[in-house]
Simulated assay, not measured.
Amino acid sequence: MKVYISADIEGTAGITHWDEADRNNPAYPEFREEMTREVVAACDGAVAAGATDILIKDAHDSGRNIYVSQLPECARIVRGWSGHPYSMVQELDESFDALVLVGYHSRAGAEGNPLAHTMSLNVAEMRINGEPASEFMLHTYAAATLGVPVAFVSGDEGLCADVKKVNPKIGTFATSRGVGPSSVSVSPARAQRGIREGVNAALQEDLASMKIRLPNAFTLQIKYTNPVNAYQASFYPGAKHLGDRTIGFETGDFFEVMRAVKFTLRD
């Protein structure tokens, strides 16, 4: 079995403040370590389910967070960013049996995580076909274009609830619950066990049942926190300035949605 693991940090156990996700802040190393341990737990669960080839994308910020010395022998890791539109699932292709998302978080505009966002803090809200979009949704759709199902997701309770709305067959483990700018979290040990056991169980289920059906066409809307960004992004080919800090883009190919997201967001 060949498994792809995409790992973020804002949905790891205990994390609550942006300082803890910033590699230049003294609080960061603790959560870098927890991100690594949760990825290792996902790897252990995958191996127990029969995985022999695991590719990991370090998908937070610099793409250089995970302690690579702790990874199992069967794992490979993508560090840094190539600029490919598939972003947090770079190098994913049709040869993979399943995609696992670890440490993911609620979407921009949601209250399930004090660190909720979608791809950039410059995004107030993103919608696809009228539905609020998270990083989970973007990359699940990207995987679906390749025929690869998402088998398991870990992150905050709000995200896990959204996952079940997309497909209740996808396994989840909730690490925390946002309460305003605070969070209520399980212990790191409990998170690691839940992820290990959850990945193991999910990969032994009928993976075909976890696939989603993509719409025939896509309407992307991005509302920015700053109206200047909306004006600038409206010059992306095919984009329209809809007013109220928002651009729109329509296509029949989800790859083009991901390309538009790539080139219309500014950090």
Rank of each mutant, 00 (worst) to 15 (best):
E34Y: 06
G45P: 04
N216L: 11
V68F: 02
I54S: 07
E135M: 09
A110Q: 07
I77F: 11
I222W: 01
A13K: 00
R266K: 15
A42G: 06
T175S: 01
G180T: 11
V186N: 00
H241C: 10
A217V: 02
V47G: 01
F31C: 05
G194E: 04
F152E: 08
P26K: 15
T52W: 04
S69L: 10
P72H: 10
N25F: 06
Y231Q: 13
D19R: 13
A7P: 03
A108S: 12
E33D: 14
R266E: 14
D53R: 10
A21C: 14
Q232D: 12
G130T: 09
G80S: 07
K240E: 15
Q221T: 13
R23L: 03
G80W: 05
P227G: 02
I247D: 09
G63W: 08
N226Y: 14
V40P: 00
T225G: 07
H60D: 11
A27I: 04
R196P: 01
A7G: 05
E157S: 10
N25K: 14
V100Y: 08
W81P: 08
H241W: 09
F96W: 12
A143Q: 10
S106Q: 06
P114T: 05
E30L: 15
E205W: 01
T52S: 14
H105C: 07
V166G: 00
V39F: 01
V100P: 08
E250H: 06
V186A: 03
S134A: 03
S6N: 05
R193W: 13
G178W: 09
N229H: 15
R37Y: 06
S187D: 06
G14C: 04
G130M: 08
V163F: 00
Y104S: 05
I5H: 02
V47R: 12
G109A: 11
F173C: 00
K2W: 04
K211E: 09
T251H: 03
V68P: 00
M258L: 15
Q90V: 14
V261Q: 01
R193N: 13
H60G: 10
V47Y: 01
R32T: 00
V179N: 00
I5Q: 02
W81A: 11
A110E: 11
S234C: 03
I9E: 03
V68Y: 06
D8V: 03
G252K: 08
V179Y: 07
F254R: 02
T118I: 08
G80I: 05
S95Q: 13
N216C: 11
I222A: 01
G11D: 00
G178A: 10
A142Q: 04
G248V: 08
N226F: 13
V153C: 04
